[in-house]
Design a protein around this nucleic acid. Structure first.
Ligand SMILES: [Mn+2]
Ligand SMILES: [Mn+2]
Ligand SMILES: [Mn+2]
Ligand SMILES: [Mn+2]
Lengths: 217, 217
DNA sequence: ATTAAAATTTAGACCAATCTAAAAATTTAT
DNA sequence: ATAAATTTTTAGATTGGTCTAAATTTTAAT
């Protein structure tokens, strides 16, 4: 059995590994866990003792197959609870992450199986992130960033790579909800901003910083 | 803010107070919390420092108004989650208590308000226990034990005072589900057992030990 | 190749929640 | 009223997760 804290470390290691090649650093974990590097080192020794991570001093860390299994279960629970909060309870997609951070640590195979069925076996959470299947297999849907779309192309918004409440609230105000149709009119070579028609409306400018965090397909 | 552990102590003190007059003893708390008396004493000092309980050494303990407020919030959450698990996810009433023990510690006013609305503002949990309102007022519905019903009287099963899984599963097998009609045919003076018609079926015998834990109105 | 800077680990401490063993207070029995 | 039994509290230790400050290792710069 893994504690609340251990599960958080494993999940964070998984997520950091997904966005960079090679091992995860102690400092990166300290930042994500909101603790100090010394505390991270202590926890890494414990996780290594439990064979949940591969760890060599000063060399960074990566998950073992068992560690990855645990991480994927936690992520599965997190994302299913987010779907519940948005689809069933009517929360906004900008509000649910902190609640899911708590709910994800409730450990009951049966609970999550029944929740999954109640939600209709969703394949993605409210931010478009894929939900691992019960066996812990993570789907890898086809998509690219809005910055990579060529002018004239029409696409659908399927996900975001930034989850902060201010960013998501900005998208709400701009009409950029998941599933909306986007038609790229022009990519500004000067600042990388994108002129885009949202759901058939008159084109608007979206900064490169925003466009970079929009996943489309 | 109260920790997970503190909330459990307050809830248990509330429940023990409801079933006996006067203060709650250290040993009773040790039994309910599955810890040792020494651990209870430590925690009582902490709760007293936070003004959540009245505590005089060797004299037992009772909740302050603030302690009772916290306890009732936890109980409200516990019972709402039990309704969710049974009504929405399809759990049996014998399975939900341990899960609710975990879910009750998720602290979000908004979550519980939305959950309450989603469930249609239920007034009782799957065991017939009343759900405190958002302000923490606990309803006290009219009811009595089946052992107090006189022969010939027809009543409705509205609650149980024993929550163990074996007991609840026995009720399921016997057809004693919440809301069913009960007609008391005879109370056996010898062993206190009750002969009762369940939902219009041929009368059956129910032991006094069982009848004592059935609430009717 | 040295040196400076940055990252990481160790040493030693703290806090919450628990334990066992022993001491003190209260209750019950004689 | 005294002694015995029970309950409760104290003393001292442990575990998980965290911290600061200092030492060590790795990486980057000269
Ligand atoms: Mn999230
Ligand atoms: Mn998400
Ligand atoms: Mn319960
Ligand atoms: Mn209940």
């Amino acid at each position: 059995m893994s504690s609340f804290t251990e599960e958080n470390y494993l999940k964070i290691i998984y997520n950091l590994s997904a966005w960079q090649e090679g091992e995860v650093s102690t400092n990166a974990l300290a930042e994500q866990t909101q603790t100090r590097a010394a505390s991270v080192t202590d926890m890494l020794r414990k996780l290594a003792d439990k064979n949940l991570i591969h760890y060599k001093k000063y060399q960074g860390v990566r998950l073992t197959p068992e560690g990855e299994r645990v991480a994927l279960q936690v992520i599965r629970k997190h994302r299913l609870w987010e779907v519940f909060l948005v689809d069933k309870l009517g929360f906004g997609w900008d509000e649910v992450h902190p609640l899911a951070e708590e709910l994800e640590h409730i450990n009951s195979e049966k609970l999550i199986q029944k929740l999954d069925a109640f939600l209709g076996h969703p394949s993605a959470d409210p931010h478009g992130d894929p939900i691992p299947d019960p066996a812990g297999r993570m789907p890898h849907p086809e998509h690219c960033r809005l910055t990579e779309v060529v002018p004239g192309q029409a696409v659908v918004l399927v996900g975001v790579t930034e989850h902060s409440a201010p960013f998501l609230q900005f998208l709400d105000r701009t009409g950029l909800t998941l599933g909306c149709r986007l038609e790229v009119v022009e990519v500004n070579a000067f600042d990388g901003s994108v002129q885009v028609g949202i759901s058939g409306n008159a084109p608007q400018f979206v900064s490169q910083a925003v466009a970079r965090n929009l996943l489309v397909s």
